[in-house]
Structure formats: C-alpha cells, structure tokens
Design a protein around this nucleic acid. Sequence first.
DNA 1: AGATGTTTTAAACATTTGTTTAATTAAATT
DNA 2: AATTTAATTAAACAAATGTTTAAAACATCT
Lengths: 204, 204
Amino acid sequence: MTKTKIDISTEEKLKEAARAVFTRKGYAATKVRDIASEADINLSLVNYYFRSKEKLFELIMAETIQKLFDKIKPIINDESTTVTEKIERIVDHYISMLIETPDLPLFIVNEVMSGSNKLLQMTNNGKLFLNSHFAKQLMALQEEGKIQFHPVNVMMNTISMVVFPFLMRPLILRSGALDSEGFIKIVKERKKLIPVWMAGIMNL
Amino acid sequence: MTKTKIDISTEEKLKEAARAVFTRKGYAATKVRDIASEADINLSLVNYYFRSKEKLFELIMAETIQKLFDKIKPIINDESTTVTEKIERIVDHYISMLIETPDLPLFIVNEVMSGSNKLLQMTNNGKLFLNSHFAKQLMALQEEGKIQFHPVNVMMNTISMVVFPFLMRPLILRSGALDSEGFIKIVKERKKLIPVWMAGIMNL
DNA sequence: AGATGTTTTAAACATTTGTTTAATTAAATT
DNA sequence: AATTTAATTAAACAAATGTTTAAAACATCT
C-alpha cells in the first residue's frame, strides 16, 4: 500500500478559495458551492478533501489565528525593547498585514462573537498577553504613576486604532471620503502616528 | 373599508425577536424559524407581517441605524460646544448605548462589510460628518497647526476606542481577564479617559 | 500491460429553509 | 345577529444546500 499521494495543487486551491470566501462572507453566508466555484473545482472535492464544511472552516480558522499570533509573541516578550518600541512593532506589523488582508478583522470578530473558543485556545486563554513582558512593563508604568488607569486600556487602544479603520473601510470607500489609495495612505501614516499618540496617553 | 388594524403586540414581539436574533447571529445565520420561536409565535406570521426575511431585516436595520444617528446629529452640529465637549458627549452617549446593546457593533460592522448601503443612505453618503460643525472645527485645528494629520483620524480614533472593546468583549469575558461587571467598570472609566486622551492627541 | 490505488466527475439524497396555501378562529362592522 | 375583515394555524411546497454514491479518469507500481 502506497502512501496516500494527493494533488497538493487541488487541495491548496480549495483552501485558498475557502479562506477567501469565508473571510469575505462569514461562515453562514458561505456556501460549499461558492468555495468550489471560486476554486473552479468540482463540488464533491470539498468533502473529499476536508470531510465537511465545518471541518474546513475550523482548519482555515486555526491557520489564520496561528498566523495572527506567531509574529506578535516574540514582539511582546522581547526584553530588550521599551513599551513604545513594542507598540511601534505591533502597529507596524498588523497594519502591514491588514493592508494585505483587509477582510481579516471581520472574520476574526465574527468568530469571536459567534462564540467559538479557537482564539482563546490559541492565546492560552489570554495569558499570552497577561504573562508577557509587555504586560509587566505596563504594570510597572502604572506603579510609578505614569498611567492612572488599568493597563488593559493600552492594549485595547492600540488594537482598536489599528484594526477599526479596516472594519470601517468599506463604508469609508463607498462614502467617497477616501479612495482605495487614499485609505492606504492614511493607515500607513497611522503606523507612525499611533505609537506617538499612545506614548502621549502613557505620559512617555 | 376599514383601516387595517393589526395586533401590535404580535408584530412588535416579532420585531423584537428579529432584532435580538439578527443582532446576535447576523443575517445569514438567522433562520426565520429562529425568529418565530424566539418570539414564540407561529412561523407563518413572520411572512404575514413582514413579507420576507429580507424585508424584515431591512426594517430592523433602518430602525437601528436611525436610532444610531438621531442623537449624534445635534451633538456634532452644536455650534456652542468645543471639540473636546463634542467628543465627551459622543463618547458618553455611545458607551451608554453600547452597555445596553453590546452586540450592536458587530451587527453594524457586518452590515457594512456585506455591502449594504443602508448606512450610507442614512448618513447622506457620509456628508453628515463631512459637513458638520465638528468637521469644520477639526479643519480649523489643522490650519492653526494643532494637529498635523488628516482630521479624519480624530473621528476614527474616537469611534475606534469607544466601539472596539465591545467587539472584543466576548473574548475578554471568556478569557477570564475581566468579568461582566469588570468590563462595564472599565468601559465606564473610558467615558472620562477617551476625551482626555483625544485632547492630548490634538494638543488641546 | 495489468493491477491497484487515487482523484475527479455527475448525479442523487436528505435536510434545511424561505415562502405559500387553505382552512380555522377571532375581531370588527353593519 | 349576520357579515365581513383580520389574525392565526398546520401543512405543504419549492428551492437551496451539505453530503454521499458510484462510476470514470488518472496515476503508480509490479
């Protein structure tokens, strides 16, 4: 019996299509037939390769979240950087990523709201942040009186200011206030601005 | 011929159920049967009162968006208040509203991403903001050099910092970092903090 | 080439789901 | 009270949708 040899190209094409459609339309609105036709591949092969729509979704989800945290982990645990430097790197990395995949935030947020625990599992119940060097630095800042509020606000504000514009992007574009390039220009400028604003907020 | 007299109670119960389920699960994941059983009312009555699932959704959507902008309009056009006072009022109003209906942001954001133009229609293509007294004040601030960035960043940051925590709420709660009351405590504190932070960002 | 295992295809299946129908009950009007 | 109109119900329908089946095409190995 030979080792199962599958055509990577087909499986990968389907995964790529699934990623695209799931991300764009969400789980419920995505039909298996959408994925198949997006990949231009026979309907049955979706089940052949991934057993079920749900299994395929979970696979995509896990990979997406993995990719989301792989880069952030070393940044928030780097003991050689200051709080502001960490924020600079986080902001830079995520804005770059989101320019490439602007639909990602809704995908994640939907997953969060729909009650799945994938994200929590992958962040070790949020302890990835709570136990990070970054968190320790923030608590130190609080103790020396630089910040008079819960350190969680720092993370909230940073992620908010990075991610939210992408959630509003379709609205902004369709309103005509900015075009696609104008939007990218603004968010790229925010790469520099957000760390400065955050430094101000923390009295640094 | 008498004026159609319908049992308000039934229609209203269905609308309330629809609002709840649509908001919680989104359009595609909501089944007409979910709405009927949430309202504990016969399935057929959904079509009897609202013609179709889509019509019902549009009705809920329009009402929601209406409610969303009714309050903000006078605030951003009040010529007697400063930029910071306006931000204080916006932040206070929306955080209060979101504490009552924490699922609202996802509902809106989904609607935005799914390509509907309801929101744009209701904001007169975003001109509600662009032509507001608030926008004029921000442009003045830019001209006198207080802010060296596109004024749209002010609105982006304010809304981001107000709304985003509610999008992350399920994750935060399930992570155990905060409980339901702890979350409310934090966002209530942010009512005071966000205007201060924004003032800092604008060098006010 | 023939045998064996893998991938692809078209068709069919069983559920789910939005909507309609036709009959019944309740309310309003004359 | 009789008649008309509105509201409610259970059943049925048709289309959509996730999944399976069985046969064909393709590849690999002896």
